[in-house]
Design a protein around this nucleic acid. Structure first.
Lengths: 147, 147
DNA sequence: CTCTATGCAAAAGTTTTGCAATCGC
DNA sequence: GCGATTGCAAAACTTTTGCATAGAG
């Protein structure tokens, strides 16, 4: 698994303090430990996993603090979510090879067709079999941008 | 929006009948209308949207039928979900440009680093601004494959 | 007639919200 | 002290499951 270098984590914790100050966010134990947990794990944990791990060090922390803190860290760009706009499962009956533009604000998904498909990265065999190669472009669509 | 050609929908409905027969699935009004809805919309609808639309034609349909039917259509490969493994939001503190291998069975996410980043597709400007370009490789990891 | 699929209801699981108390700045 | 943040509790929302019945093959 891709564990992050401890020295880099320290550096990122400094970044955390800085960015929080710049955004008027306060540096609490909870925020610190939640960020450390996401940064250190390298396995892209979900909110509940983070909650269970942080609770070992801060026994009184509550799940809603984890959710709120993850949201504020995401707003400042300190962390990101691997699958944006995934509150609901969304379906596609189009079996042609195509890709997606996803608006991270409104969740609108638009098909992208490529004349030259993206190349299969090397070393994928080490990870497992490949079902599909899917390019996701994340951004804010015109509709959301104008409002 | 990318609306699907009506003639193609008819063809895909034929495919539906065929594939259902091959998999021992029965061709019900519900299955037919749910598939037609996903195929015709082209906007990658979620389960609840499909439910609300199909209900106009089949007023007694229930949400759980929609969920179950979508799951069985996915199993046979007639439809796919745009974001597999998205029951829970997952977070990443790694701000380096990187991509992801996602196991559609167990949900494990592994980082992929590319020496040559994928090219930004042409015509993206028409869709909106670009926050990030994210390659997702979907497949079944070794761990799940062996068990 | 058999066995899958459906509808109803209830449950499970994730995330959000209101509010008073707490704690960083 | 002021105001952001937290913890608790409850609610909202999406999805899953058990079971009796209806309906496709």
């Amino acid at each position: 698994m891709h564990k992050i270098d401890p020295a880099e984590i320290e550096q990122r914790l400094g970044q955390l303090t800085e960015t929080c100050r710049a955004n008027g966010l306060r540096m609490t134990h909870q925020r610190m430990e939640i960020f450390r947990e996401v940064a250190a794990s390298g396995e892209h944990p979900d909110a509940d996993t983070i909650f269970k791990r942080v609770r070992k060090r801060l026994p009184t922390i509550s799940p809603d603090t984890v959710y709120r803190t993850l949201a504020s860290l995401e707003e400042t760009g300190l962390i990101s979510r691997v699958n944006p706009v995934c509150g609901r499962a969304r379906f596609d009956a189009n079996t042609d090879e195509h890709h997606h533009y996803i608006c991270t604000k409104c969740g609108k998904i638009t098909d992208i067709y490529l004349s030259t498909p993206p190349a299969l990265p090397e070393g994928i065999e080490n990870l497992g079999e490949v079902e599909s190669l899917h390019l996701q472009v994340h951004g804010v669509c015109h509709n959301c941008k104008s409002s």
